[in-house]
Design a protein around this nucleic acid. Structure first.
Length: 225
DNA sequence: ATTCTTACA
DNA sequence: TGTAAGGA
């Protein structure tokens, strides 16, 4: 089986062989914080499938031209964002469907733009969370849209900072709807809340875009950014 | 003896 | 990144 991941543990030499690297390189990666510490049983270091997946990720990123230091920053970023998965992860009654990705797949979505800085921002925003060695994007729609924007030439850093601004306004809008409906109903979350709010915002945003485009149409040529 | 680390090349 | 030497 090509992708059958068995639940076993590896000694240093086994792991290195599976990952296609030398034991020395394995230790090197560990010294740089690129992989988590192994489970220690006396003097024996036991590695598991997570470590193996991580090593394959590192190899893949290196082949894509990433530097070891860059990968180290990336790894550190994800370690610190680990608990974000529980805070912002699932369990919330959202309509957004999360997407599980390997780091390689994420890199493919945002070709050449997956920098440690952007990752840190995405984690901070809660767009991304980590689950083991996989990445979870909280919203397939936001993932697709942001990837499309990047393909159109918008820097990912700009997409993310714009996302942060949109998030702030969206929070403000949500507060309005919750306040209004809560003041006139007993329920904590009436069934009409989401469709109502979405309809209003969709309509208002559509008209706001019309106004904005008309304004720019008269005096200035359309510009990107 | 085996497994891993330290230190040096 | 390889390897020799040494701790546990």
């Amino acid at each position: 089986m090509a992708d059958g991941r068995e639940h076993r543990e590896y000694r240093m030499e086994e792991l290195a062989e599976e990952a296609g690297i030398t034991v020395r390189t394995l230790r090197f990666y560990r010294e740089r914080g690129l992989i988590p510490p192994p489970r220690r049983e006396g003097r024996i270091a036991w590695y598991d499938d997570h470590h193996l997946a991580r090593l394959r990720t590192i190899t893949g990123l290196l082949e894509r031209g990433h530097t070891l230091n860059g990968i180290a920053d990336l790894a550190a970023t994800f370690e610190s964002g680990r608990d974000v998965a529980e805070v912002l992860g699932l369990g919330e009654p959202t309509e957004e469907t999360p997407v599980r990705l390997t780091p390689e797949q994420l890199a493919d979505y945002f070709e050449g733009e997956v920098t440690p800085e952007n990752l840190a921002t995405a984690l901070d925003l809660g767009y991304l969370a980590t689950d083991g060695d996989e990445i979870v994007h909280i919203s397939r729609r936001l993932l697709e849209v942001s990837a499309e924007l990047v393909r159109e030439g918008v820097p990912l850093s700009t997409v993310l900072s714009s996302g942060r601004r949109v998030r702030e306004h969206a929070d403000a809008l949500a507060e309005i709807f919750v306040r209004v409906l809560h003041a006139h109903t007993k329920e904590t979350e009436p069934a009409q809340l989401r469709p109502l709010a979405r309809a209003v915002v969709d309509a208002e945003l559509s008209m706001a875009l019309d106004r904005r485009l008309r304004r720019e149409d008269g005096t200035q040529p359309p510009k990107s950014g």
